Amino acid sequence: MHVSIFLKTSLPQVSCCTTCCKQYHCPICPKLKSFPLPKFDQHMAVHVKNAVDFQDMFICRCNLPCRDPGHFHCPLCDRTVIRRMDMESHLKLCSAQCLPASNEQIPSPHQPSVVSPTSSSKDAPVPVVASPSTAASPVSPPPSPKAALASIASSFSLTSSPPQDTSTQVTPEPQHSKTPKAQYKQVKCPVCSLTLYQKNFQKHMKRKHTEGKEITAQDHLKSVCVDATNGISAVKRNKHGSSVPIHVQSKTWGHVHKVQCELEECRQYHLLAVRSGLASKHCEHIRSLQYCTDTAQEECLKEETLTAMVQQNILEEAKKVACLKRQSQAQASHVPLCVQVNLQDTQGRFSFLFMNQGCTITVASAD
């Protein structure tokens, strides 16, 4: 019989490893690492729970290299089956084929042998009469799968205990068994009426019933208005740590209204909300603008400063001409070209956002 198949009444003998470690290796999972005794009992109990229940034996899934994927071995033939449902169907067919041959060879114990009147007395078999005590005692039915599973899971720790030294007898300390999962406290979700364990309730509420990040007056992303005409603001990308600010536009006046975020992921989030009928849903950057109270001051570029930067090889002559041209275009469009933005928690650190007609060109940070 294969190592992955064992009777419900007899348990597989697993001993402690003495070559590489002092723990226990699963006999049908060679790729897994070794386990201590409590973890090993749980692992084997899972094998028994997922095994195929056939007559008086359990057929566990085998992960040995006799076949690439995990599979089941048929105890009646040499075939291996991968899927559990296919294995159950195969056992029905295979047992039906083996049943007639077994019935011809082994007579039923409940049917007494009958002597033919034409046969001679020498060749006639002697009828066996059961004693009253044997006839009266009923045949004990095979144990149920649940009872066998409980007995096997509870007695794995007895059969797989490490070898003890017989010279000195030490009284073993009682092992405190872990509380089974069925005894854990269960709660019911007030939103979706799902019954789950109490230890998983907070994760369930956070993953399934939390609509984005909460934005409040005390907890929101810092922002500064950089263009009051077009409703463009610089918003901190993340709440924690240093991050480059992003542009968010929230213009709800005039003939054309625009409410958009610079990040592509925020745009996709808003498009999904619109297709779902929730057009008022916005990302946390746009929702943080309702607590924006600061307005950045425009910094004008002076030609003398740019000339000094060219002389010190900090800036090229072509860049100087481009900056002066962009400043002229910004003044003609009545939008700021360069503003000072301070979104950091520490004093003395600031960022310059260069803008042209409300569009970001580059971002530079300095101390």
Results as ranks from 00 to 15, higher is better:
148 A>E: 02
101 A>T: 02
3 V>N: 07
270 H>Q: 09
114 V>E: 13
261 C>Y: 05
120 S>I: 08
176 H>E: 10
239 K>H: 14
269 Y>F: 12
40 F>K: 03
106 I>P: 00
298 E>V: 04
101 A>K: 10
73 H>G: 01
331 Q>M: 14
167 S>D: 09
203 K>T: 06
16 C>G: 01
230 N>S: 07
92 K>F: 12
168 T>P: 00
302 K>W: 13
115 V>L: 14
272 L>N: 15
107 P>Y: 08
148 A>G: 04
49 K>C: 06
169 Q>I: 05
3 V>F: 09
303 E>P: 02
203 K>H: 05
210 T>S: 15
97 Q>F: 10
275 R>E: 15
279 A>E: 06
248 V>C: 00
274 V>S: 09
234 A>F: 01
241 G>P: 06
55 Q>N: 11
105 Q>V: 05
4 S>Y: 04
359 C>L: 15
76 L>A: 03
341 V>Q: 03
33 K>D: 13
287 R>N: 09
220 H>S: 08
274 V>G: 04
63 N>W: 06
220 H>T: 06
99 L>Q: 14
84 R>V: 07
222 K>S: 11
277 G>P: 01
358 G>M: 06
51 A>R: 01
290 Q>E: 11
167 S>Q: 12
194 L>R: 10
329 Q>R: 11
114 V>S: 13
313 N>Y: 09
352 F>C: 08
221 L>G: 05
136 A>Q: 15
33 K>Q: 13
362 T>L: 13
217 A>H: 15
148 A>C: 07
226 V>D: 05
113 S>V: 08
83 R>H: 11
60 C>K: 01
249 Q>R: 00
306 L>K: 05
46 V>C: 13
162 P>H: 03
42 Q>C: 07
45 A>H: 00
26 C>M: 08
195 T>H: 15
335 V>E: 01
212 G>Y: 13
73 H>S: 05
136 A>C: 15
280 S>H: 09
53 D>K: 00
76 L>T: 01
69 P>N: 07
155 S>I: 04
70 G>R: 07
10 S>R: 10
17 C>K: 02
257 H>A: 06
208 K>G: 07
87 M>T: 02
131 S>W: 08
37 L>N: 00
111 Q>A: 09
261 C>F: 01
80 T>M: 13
104 E>R: 09
355 M>I: 14
343 L>C: 07
33 K>M: 12
320 K>S: 10
144 S>R: 10
288 S>H: 03
91 L>W: 00
208 K>M: 07
169 Q>A: 06
240 H>Y: 15
170 V>H: 12
319 K>T: 06
321 V>A: 15
139 V>D: 13
71 H>I: 01
95 S>I: 08
102 S>W: 09
65 P>C: 05
197 Y>I: 03
298 E>I: 05
142 P>I: 12
111 Q>P: 03
93 L>M: 11
174 P>Q: 13
86 D>C: 07
7 L>W: 12
154 S>L: 07
35 F>Q: 05
16 C>Q: 14
164 Q>E: 11
91 L>E: 00
239 K>E: 12
215 I>M: 03
139 V>C: 14
320 K>D: 01
70 G>N: 06
13 Q>M: 11
326 R>M: 10
264 E>P: 05
184 Y>E: 12
146 K>W: 08
